[in-house]
């Protein structure tokens, strides 16, 4: 406990407010992206439709399911520690990490295929024809968004690992589990970001 706090609970609540504010910031960060995305989509409907047809709906959908599950596993861990069961928390952490890694691997495969298919904006972009320009813009957004999201995932996995490590050290108990809550909040947020991106990337053309 830092000396500016009157109690552990005081500190815990402050940490939660800090995370909420951080997420408010994140909403505007991704919000700006989504805004420009939608704006450009409106400007180049055909190009975006073309590009969306080349997005990998299968991997995208599996990943959505994986990520949703990971939020459940982490929440299960949180509930476990609130009942005072650190072992369960550790297990939940590893399940979450596992799912997170699966997500990233699938994402990697998807990127690999995209690049292999020449879906990289620039002179050698493979979707030619009149709508190529719009499609390239789509792919800029696609890469910006998915890379940023993946970075958030990597940070998230690091945080969950840290939770597991601390749980193992016996830091958390029924009485005190703030960091778990804070990280849970973060993880759900990353999930929500994905749920916003998913329709933009994969479903816009349907």
């Amino acid at each position: 406990m830092h000396f500016q706090y009157s109690s552990a609970e005081h500190q815990a609540e402050s940490a939660m407010s800090g995370m909420w504010l951080f997420l408010a910031q994140e909403i505007l960060f991704f919000g700006a992206l989504v805004f420009v995305w939608v704006y450009c989509c409106y400007q180049h409907p055909a190009g975006f439709r073309l590009a969306t047809q080349h997005a990998n709906l299968l991997i995208g959908s599996i990943n959505t399911a994986v990520l949703l599950t990971s939020s459940f596993t982490f929440t299960a861990g949180l509930l476990a520690i609130e009942r005072g069961e650190p072992r369960r928390l550790i297990q939940a952490c590893f399940a979450t990490i596992g799912l997170g890694v699966v997500f990233l691997l699938l994402k990697g495969v998807e990127w690999f295929k995209d690049v292999g298919d020449g879906l990289v904006p620039g002179a050698h972009f493979s979707l030619t024809g009149p709508d190529s320009g719009g499609a390239q813009i789509f792919y800029v957004f696609y890469y910006v968004a998915t890379v940023l999201h993946a970075l958030h995932m990597i940070i998230g996995i690091g945080l969950v690992l840290w939770i597991a490590w601390r749980a193992r050290r016996g830091d958390f108990s029924r009485a005190w589990s703030t960091p778990v809550e804070v990280v849970g909040l973060y993880w759900s947020f990353v999930d929500v970001v994905w749920l916003t991106l998913y329709p933009l990337i994969y479903l816009a053309a349907l």
Partner: peptide, 16 residues
Amino acid sequence: VLATPVLAMTLILLGF
């Protein structure tokens, strides 16, 4: 907290 992230995203897009 609310304005800076928009600049951040704008700069990313500018870079791209």
